[in-house]
Write a protein that binds this DNA or RNA. Structure first.
Length: 492
RNA sequence: GGCCUCAUCGUCUAAUGGUUAGGACAGCGGCUUCUCAAGCCGUCAAUAGGGGUUCGAUUCCCCUUGGGGCUACCA
């Protein structure tokens, strides 16, 4: 890829209340590209649609960048005290604060004959479109207002009639080279006379991005595949203004299991909802990076710096990718299992802190279920029994295979006697506990199952749980005995 | 409908003219085993179809089929 100056790549989310998972994937690729080329990664906020604006959402968007530790070089920043600041010398980076920048360009385009005033009402436009569709034509503005004389225009303008400014799409064709997809060509006759300036004075997306990308010296634009068909508008705009174009690369869509564009109705679309469910930022980043791209395909786990180093834009797939939650879960579980123990515990604590005030007990619980944990939100359900005062044992569950109550009670009572006599150091080591109890079982001439099953269920009350040795160590002697006594009352 | 775009196991992908088409998730089976996990081992499973080009096509070209996107005073 040819680079002009240093690479400046940007992401431009609209603040709609959350970060789309596809936006994050694009952010990631921007981030990799910028970091591997010593370029800059810019965050710009596109909030030119006043109607869709949701107050307060810019903050949560920026917060997500922070949570994911995706540092950008320029753009709006959320300060520690919650206030908003902006960094970078091309600001402001929020389009609604740049309104006065766009209008002169629109006027200039009109003066130079590249754009024109349009006074058509929404009602007329809607009807026109309906008629066109009914006649099996492509809906396009019919250029009625292009016929207006300059006198008429002056008059309408003077009387304050509501109007917009439209691009006058020239004849010919527009093509560009997409590093992911190759050359894409679209006939200009397919392109509608795009509105550049809305009647409320706000620019539309197309005008705003072209001006901002130029002014901010953006060299690479990564965006979703859904933008391909509107790229010609931006190409033409660049030509009209005499500006160099950035490189446009369109990344594939992230899909629902039914292969349609990922939608809220069919699953989680927001990064925040994944975070809230207990997916780790690094796992999410690792997984998402590999959706549509893979450095070697012989590994699934890459560190962030490896991804930065290995990323190659032209090797990004062009086909959409279904988000496979199972694999995300596996990835998350892998991170949970392999991270430093201390880090693991720090991730776990907030999820179970309401279960107990005893931090070491919480940590022990978290460690106990580590191999069973896929996402952190499962943690409370998995560990709750450990903190329960009473377990409310089901007597049927205490019986191993064909065992009857009496037999289970005998084994459990015997185990209780044995455990009473156990020295304290056995309660410090699962391994020692394991071998001591197993040796005792052998000595009694019993099978493991007939003793260990009732013992485990006595301690956990659960059909599925960690093993009895782990639980004995986790509880300590006194609590373990109390649990056993409790279970015994259900076996009479 | 029009335009654009895409096409390797169920899913994510590797292999860009020569491989027994590889890996991962999921599935299935086994080992282990007090349960569930974890772990280890094994197994099932794909080049959408048809034409070319070529000594040779997953790979290059064309057609068909199928999927997706766009088609706003939304981004």
């Amino acid at each position: 890829m040819i680079e002009k100056k240093s690479m400046r790549t940007r992401i431009a989310p609209s603040p709609t209340g959350y970060m789309h998972i596809g936006t994050l994937r694009t952010v990631l690729y921007d981030y990799f590209l910028a970091r591997q080329s010593q370029g800059q990664f810019i965050v710009r906020i596109e909030d030119t649609d006043q109607e869709r604006l949701v107050p307060g959402t810019l903050e949560s968007l920026l917060k997500t960048f922070q949570t994911l530790q995706l540092d950008y070089d320029e753009g709006p920043v959320l300060m520690d005290d919650g206030s908003l600041s902006q960094k970078g010398k091309f600001g402001p980076y929020i389009q609604s604060e740049r309104l006065k920048i766009y209008q002169p360009y629109a006027v200039e385009l009109v003066e130079r004959g590249h754009a024109y005033h349009c006074f058509c009402s929404e009602e007329r436009l809607t009807k026109m479109r309906e008629d066109q569709v009914a006649a099996k034509q492509a809906p396009k503005y019919d250029r009625t207002c292009l016929e207006l004389s300059s006198e008429e225009i002056k008059q309408k303008l003077a009387s304050g009639e509501s109007h917009v400014i439209r691009m006058k799409i020239p004849e010919g064709e527009s093509s560009f080279i997409d590093p992911i997809r190759g050359t894409i060509t679209i006939q200009n006759s397919e392109v509608d006379d795009q509105i550049l300036l809305k009647s409320d004075g706000f620019p539309t997306y197309h005008l705003a991005v072209v001006i901002d990308d130029h002014l901010m010296e953006i060299t690479h634009v990564l965006r979703g595949e859904e933008w391909i068909s509107s790229t010609p508008k931006e190409i033409i705009l660049h030509r009209m203004l005499g500006w160099d174009m950035p490189t446009y690369a369109h990344v594939p869509l992230i899909l629902n299991p039914d292969k349609t564009k990922l939608s809220k109705r069919k699953g989680d679309v927001s990064v925040e909802s994944y975070l809230k469910k207990g997916y780790l930022p690094e796992a999410l980043i690792n997984f998402l990076s590999l959706l549509g791209w893979n450095p070697t395909a012989d590994r699934e786990i890459y560190t962030r710096s490896e991804l930065v180093e290995l990323f190659i834009l032209s090797k990004v797939h062009s086909a959409g990718a279904v988000l496979n939650v199972e694999k995300l879960n596996w990835t998350n579980a892998h991170y949970l299992k392999t991270m430093e123990e201390g880090t693991y515990l720090e991730w776990c604590r907030p999820w179970i802190q309401t279960l107990s005030h005893d931090r070491s007990a919480l940590d022990q619980a978290a460690l106990l279920v580590r191999d069973r944990l896929q996402i952190l939100s499962e943690l409370p359900a998995l560990t709750q029994f450990l903190f329960e005062d009473k377990l409310n044992h089901e007597s049927a569950l205490l019986l191993w295979k064909t065992q009857n109550k009496q037999e289970a009670a005998e084994r459990l009572t015997a185990a209780r006697h044995f455990i009473v006599g156990l020295s304290d150091d056995l309660f410090q080591s699962v391994e020692k506990m394991d071998s001591a109890i197993r040796a005792w079982i052998v000595q009694r001439g019993w099978g493991n199952g007939e003793v260990l099953w009732p013992l485990r269920v006595a301690l956990s009350g659960q059909k599925q749980s960690p093993g009895p040795f782990e639980l004995l160590v986790a509880y300590g002697k006194d609590r373990a005995l109390a649990r056993i006594d409790e279970a015994l009352t259900h076996l009479v």
